[in-house]
Amino acid sequence: MSTAVRELRMNGRRLRVAVRPGPGRPLVLCNGIGASLELLQPFVDRLDPAIPVVRFDVPGIGGSESPRLPYTFATLAHLLGRVLDELGYGEVDVLGISWGGGLAQQFAFQHPRRCRRLVLVATATGSLMVPAHPRVLSKMITPRRYRDPAYAARIAATLYGGRLRDEPRLAEEILHRHSPREPGAGYALQLLAGVGWSSLPFLPLIRQRTLILAGSDDPIIPLVNGRIMRRLLPHATLHVYPDGHLGLITRADELAPRVAEFLRAPGER
């Protein structure tokens, strides 16, 4: 079924949402820092069409207006709950990639009865994690890669690893796919939301079945972080794929069916 893009008014501000309808439980996608909902289109295209999908631009990113005040992961998880209320959804599955993985963890902890299953992709535990090399982190401070295609290609190997080491020009296509607006102040708000936040204290309390997808060559999120999360989450499975930080997109043919299989597996949680 075709995806419908709409705008909701939340806290008096415009929030851009995309819904691929369907009869079952929806999968909510939480995107990475600076990325609009279009970034994960290749994954959605390869995901079982029987699975409804909800995507959104966080405040200040893509087609969503900037908030009046800065937000935290906790307040954003609350906002996501209100968005799902507005769309008429109760129980959902949640997938978070990179920065969005932090939001997904927070949502699962904050709304345990509403989040059935959790998929964490190329993500970690926030400020308390095994960090990337300083030369990688320095390139994460600015959203320049989203507004400068040549720069995106130039840093692709160092920042994203995996397939983009051999095909750096692919970064131009991935990062500049139909984004309605370049990230600016919204990017800074996302960085601010992560300052001091960590899921380490509450990970053992997340009881949902969790699929962790981690790249073997991810400069931003070293693989050891996925292994740590697998040990701390009570019902987690770790799958390591041979790619980098954007493997959910560059290996969508492989990973989308794996996610669908995980979501369809029997069992309530």
Results as ranks from 00 to 15, higher is better:
Pro112Ile: 10
Tyr89Glu: 14
His111Phe: 15
Leu79Gly: 03
Arg55Thr: 05
Phe73Trp: 08
Leu120Tyr: 13
Arg82Ile: 04
Arg113Leu: 14
Gln105Ser: 07
His78Val: 02
Leu84Phe: 10
Pro67Met: 03
Arg113Pro: 00
Val54Ser: 01
Leu76Glu: 11
Gly90Asp: 14
His111Ala: 15
Ala108Ile: 02
Gly63Gln: 03
Trp99Ile: 05
Ser98Lys: 08
Pro67Val: 03
Val119Asp: 04
Val83His: 04
Ala122Gly: 15
Gly96Trp: 01
Arg82Phe: 04
His78Gly: 13
Arg55Leu: 09
Phe107Gly: 00
Val94Ala: 11
Ala77Gly: 05
Gly62Tyr: 01
Gln105Tyr: 05
Leu103Gln: 12
Ser66Thr: 07
Thr72Ile: 10
Thr75Phe: 00
Leu87Ser: 11
Val119Ser: 06
Arg55Asn: 00
Val121Ser: 12
Val119Phe: 05
Ala122Pro: 01
Leu120Ser: 09
Ser66Met: 07
Leu69Cys: 04
Phe109Gly: 09
Arg117Asn: 12
Asp93Glu: 11
Gln110Cys: 08
Gln106Gly: 04
Gly101Met: 05
Val92Glu: 02
Tyr89Lys: 03
Pro67Phe: 06
Ile61Gly: 04
Leu76His: 05
Phe73Ser: 02
Phe107Trp: 02
Val119Lys: 03
Val94Cys: 12
Trp99Leu: 09
Arg117Thr: 10
Leu120His: 05
Val54Ile: 10
Gly102Pro: 03
Gly63Ala: 09
Leu69Thr: 15
Thr123Met: 07
Glu86Asp: 12
Leu103His: 12
Gly102Phe: 06
Ala122Val: 00
Ile97Ala: 15
Val119His: 03
Arg55Pro: 01
Ala104Lys: 02
Leu76Asn: 04
Gly96Glu: 08
Arg116Pro: 09
Arg114Ala: 14
Ser64Ile: 04
Gly81Pro: 02
Ile97Cys: 14
Arg82Ala: 13
Asp57Pro: 03
Val54Pro: 01
Gly63His: 10
Ala108Trp: 00
Pro112Glu: 06
Ser98Val: 12
Ala104Asn: 08
Gly100Pro: 12
Gly88Asp: 11
